[in-house]
């Protein structure tokens, strides 16, 4: 069940993105931005926790989890240190994803050339 849930959750979210992409004039850039905002919105409405219940790891793979984590960290920061806590804590939980992608992207781009 653990593996099936992870498969279904990521698969269905990707399929929703694909259906939006095929039936509108939006580009993949639009889709990812919209999905991050939707993630934050779902988290705001308390629905993202339901997805986490279905599959803990599956819910943290789609780009939507970015919005969810940003929102939760911002709120937690506000409760700890008021408005400055909101700013200082917002990126805390997503830091692993952001900084590792930036550093890895930089290192890879040093070693590889663009294909013609």
């Amino acid at each position: 069940m653990y593996y099936i849930n992870a498969f279904l959750l990521v698969g269905i979210i990707s399929m929703i993105g694909q259906i939006i992409l095929d039936n509108t004039k939006l580009t993949p850039g639009h889709i990812t931005s919209i999905f991050v905002s939707i993630g934050a919105l779902l988290s705001f409405m308390g629905l993202y926790d339901k997805l986490i219940e279905i599959s803990k790891i599956g819910s943290s793979i789609p780009i939507m989890s970015f919005g969810n984590l940003l929102y939760k960290a911002a709120l937690e920061g506000f409760y700890n240190n008021k408005i400055i806590g909101l700013f200082s804590n917002m990126l805390s939980t997503t830091s692993a994803g952001i900084s590792s992608s930036v550093i890895i992207a930089f290192i890879i781009s040093i070693f590889f050339k663009a294909k013609d």
Binding site: S14, M15, P28, T32, P62, I63
Partner: peptide, 10 residues
């Protein structure tokens, strides 16, 4: 979208 929506796309 199968690989754009997951973190791999980012």
């Amino acid at each position: 979208c199968g690989i754009i929506i997951p973190i791999t796309g980012f």
